[in-house]
Computed example of a mutant assay.
Amino acid sequence: MNVPSPFGGNTPSIPQFGNQDPNVRAIQGAMESCYGKSIMSGVMGFGMGGLFGLFMASMSYDTPFGSPLQGANGQPAVTSLPLRQQLKIGFKDMGTRSWSMAKNFGKVGGLFSGIECGIEGLRAKNDLVNGMAAGCLTGGILAKNAGPQAVVGGCAAFAAFSAAIDAYMRQPSDE
């Protein structure tokens, strides 16, 4: 039995849920649409990138070789400043790096997910080729401002990475 979807077309009724509340069906339809998947991937990538950026920024103050510890342009090194100023500089740097990583991860997640979902819909198959093609397109799009060589390199690198992850995820479980 097909149920009209608020996102266009008909959504097949899922047997375990039966004919539930239309709001539940609408949310399920949104989660299964390419737009929903892209938005979820972008939001989750943004969150993960923020946490990753926070972690990486906090680790950069651990070593004497990190740039934040050395003075530049005649400014004193961070370690020679009072504690309150060190903390202020450190937290500002952590926020800046977290925001930058969050934006980048969100962009990559949303772009890859949207492209992969679109390719899967066009091909009507769920296989390794979808991820590789989406990886190639995503890598190329992200490297477009750096020139043709970077586009080819980004395409190859993202496609290979996507193929490796997808192949690993498709392995049968040992259970």
Rank of each mutant, 00 (worst) to 15 (best):
M1R: 06
V3S: 03
V3F: 06
S5P: 06
P6W: 01
N10V: 14
N10S: 09
N10Y: 07
I14G: 06
P15G: 03
F17D: 07
Q20K: 02
P22T: 05
G29S: 15
A30I: 14
C34H: 09
G36D: 13
G36C: 03
G36S: 09
K37Y: 06
S38R: 06
S38L: 12
S38W: 10
I39C: 03
S41V: 15
S41Q: 08
G42F: 11
G45Q: 00
G47D: 09
M48N: 11
G49N: 07
F55W: 08
M56G: 05
A57Y: 04
S58E: 01
S60Q: 15
Y61K: 05
D62Q: 02
P64F: 02
G66P: 14
G66D: 02
S67M: 08
P68D: 12
N73V: 02
N73F: 01
Q75A: 14
A77Y: 12
V78R: 12
S80F: 06
P82R: 02
L83A: 04
L83W: 02
R84V: 13
Q86E: 11
L87R: 01
K88N: 15
I89T: 03
F91P: 00
F91C: 00
K92Y: 04
D93C: 01
D93A: 00
G95I: 15
T96W: 01
R97T: 08
W99L: 01
S100Q: 06
M101G: 01
M101T: 08
K103L: 15
N104T: 04
F105T: 07
F105S: 08
F105Q: 02
F105L: 08
F105N: 07
K107S: 09
L111K: 11
G114F: 15
E116I: 07
G118E: 13
G118T: 08
G118D: 09
G121M: 07
R123S: 08
N126F: 07
N126G: 11
M132P: 10
A133M: 12
A134W: 02
T138K: 03
G140K: 13
A146F: 07
A146N: 04
A150T: 05
V151Q: 12
V151W: 05
A156D: 01
A157I: 13
F158A: 13
A160G: 03
F161Q: 07
F161H: 06
S162K: 07
S162D: 05
A164W: 12
I165V: 09
D166V: 10
A167V: 13
R170S: 14
P172C: 11
D174I: 13
